[in-house]
């Protein structure tokens, strides 16, 4: 018996350690179960995370300048009298790059404001130099804080801001000519004739 004593605390420690994977899996499992039951009741939807921001005022934020544009803040959006499009982009994001020509074609019909998300200012500036700059004003969200406030799930994401700074529409995929023609333009027409 005396030979087993020194081993005993060691064995207990081993038991605890070997239980760690089970505990970890259990925590994950409970989380998944909560998510699934939330999805069934409609209280949790990972695909439509931004539903709550629709038809609500834009969140509070202030963005520093991103060359070659001037930064903007909540007040600037609330002071709007016409609808504009706010687009989150990043130089590291390939779909954003693919989206740029569509934005360039759109910029004459609808004002575009850009937010460089989690991007070094110099990289974002170079990106806009290469692909063209469709944005009237440009803010730099270097650490992604403002992206969190807006509830974006990735880049590119686009928000249609109505007069008074109300979020009217949102797209979590790169904008395409079809989307603009079928969804965005009818919506704009509705916003302009209240």
């Amino acid at each position: 018996m005396s030979t087993q004593d020194p081993n005993k605390p060691c064995l207990t420690r081993r038991r605890v350690m070997m239980g760690v994977p089970l505990a970890g899996a259990a925590v994950l499992g409970v989380g998944f179960w909560k998510m699934l039951s939330g999805m069934q009741q409609g209280s949790f939807n990972p695909h439509d995370i931004n539903a709550p921001v629709l038809n609500r005022p834009v969140p509070d934020f202030t963005l520093p300048d991103q060359t070659p544009g001037q930064g903007f803040a909540t007040q600037d959006l609330k002071a709007l009298t016409k609808p504009i499009l706010v687009n989150f982009f990043a130089s590291w994001c390939i779909p954003c790059l693919a989206e740029m020509p569509t934005l360039m074609a759109l910029k004459d019909d609808l004002e575009l404001w850009g937010i460089a998300y989690k991007d070094r200012p110099e990289n974002a500036a170079k990106f806009l130099q290469h692909s063209g700059n469709p944005f009237t004003r440009l803010g730099s969200d270097r650490d992604g804080r403002v992206g969190i406030e807006w509830g974006i799930s990735g880049v590119p994401e686009t928000f249609l801001i109505g007069p008074g700074g109300i979020i009217r529409w949102h797209s979590a995929t790169p904008l395409e000519v079809e989307t603009i023609r079928q969804t965005l333009i009818p919506l704009l027409a509705k916003l302009k004739t209240p």
Partner: peptide, 10 residues
């Protein structure tokens, strides 16, 4: 789920 906040990890 926990904080009702959405973030993206890219």
């Amino acid at each position: 789920l926990l904080f009702d906040r959405t973030i993206s990890v890219g």
